[in-house]
């Protein structure tokens, strides 16, 4: 797993209080990991801070699963 993927998973485990085994690429933040809309906003902000990127709202809407977050950040992280 890439360094980015490791960091993304760690943030999700920390913010959503879930087990590592639940954080699969297909896992949806809201449907599988118990996030509500505010949790999702917080996750996006943590990604922005950790990877020093700015994720526009229209793109943030497309980040709904662990895998989508990892691929977005692998592409955009500086």
């Amino acid at each position: 797993m890439s360094e980015i993927a490791e960091k993304v998973k760690a943030i999700i485990i920390d913010k959503l209080g879930v087990e590592e085994s639940e954080v699969t690429p297909e896992a949806s933040f809201t449907n599988d990991l118990g996030a509500d809309s505010l949790d999702t906003v917080e996750l996006i902000m943590e990604f922005e801070k950790e990877f020093n990127v700015s994720i526009p709202d229209d793109q943030a809407e497309n980040i709904a699963t662990v895998g989508q977050a990892i691929s977005y950040l692998e592409e955009h992280a500086k």
Partner: peptide, 9 residues
């Protein structure tokens, strides 16, 4: 501005 979404609530 990087205010946490839980800040206000």
């Amino acid at each position: 501005p990087r205010f946490n979404p839980f800040f206000i609530p």
